[in-house]
Structure formats: structure tokens, C-alpha cells
């Protein structure tokens, strides 16, 4: 009998899964309302809300699944969930 053992060897390789395709609503960030608190970045289950050089935050749409948590938690109501393709 031949024993075949397969292992996952590349750390962080799930980045090959572009989970942004799962999304039906996309979060749109309005920097005019944003207070740069960073709450959206903490709560994003995908860890794809990033701080820009100017201190504002933007999601990486390649991976954002559109769960809506960032929009629900933003204290400034600076994030709107918009239907994809609109």
C-alpha cells in the first residue's frame, strides 16, 4: 500500500481565494464623515479594512464578503452598503 501524505505548506495562501466574489452588497466609505477611529478595521472578520496613508480607511474589495458589520458599527455612519452593480 502506498501512503500519501499531503500538507499545506504555504502560510497565508488562502489569499488565492478571492472571496470578494461572494458579495451582494458593497460597503462604500465616505471620508467626509469619517473620524478615523479605526473601529471598522478591528471588526472586519476578513481583516481587509486597511488604513490609508492619509489616515482614512478603505476595504480591499477583492476579499470583502459584504457582511455589513463595518457599516453597522461605524459610529459616524460613514459607511453605506450599496447593492453590487448599481
Amino acid at each position: 500500500m502506498k501512503l500519501v501524505i499531503k500538507t499545506v505548506t504555504k502560510p497565508g495562501s488562502t489569499r488565492a481565494n478571492k472571496t470578494g466574489a461572494w458579495r451582494s452588497f458593497m460597503p462604500v466609505f465616505d471620508h467626509k464623515l469619517c473620524s478615523k477611529c479605526g473601529i471598522c478595521a478591528i471588526y472586519c472578520p476578513e481583516g481587509v479594512v486597511y488604513k490609508l496613508e492619509n489616515g482614512f480607511f478603505e476595504p480591499d474589495y477583492e476579499y470583502c464578503k459584504g457582511c455589513g458589520i463595518c457599516a453597522n458599527e461605524c459610529p459616524k455612519k460613514a459607511i453605506k452598503m450599496v447593492l453590487e452593480g448599481k
Binding site: T14, R15, K18, T19, P45, G47, D60, G68
Partner: peptide, 9 residues
């Protein structure tokens, strides 16, 4: 990292 396959939210 991102690309994990947990349900949204």
C-alpha cells in the same frame, strides 16, 4: 489572512 472561507460575518 483573508481568503479564508468562513461565512460572511
Amino acid at each position: 489572512t483573508a481568503g479564508h472561507t468562513a461565512c460572511p460575518g
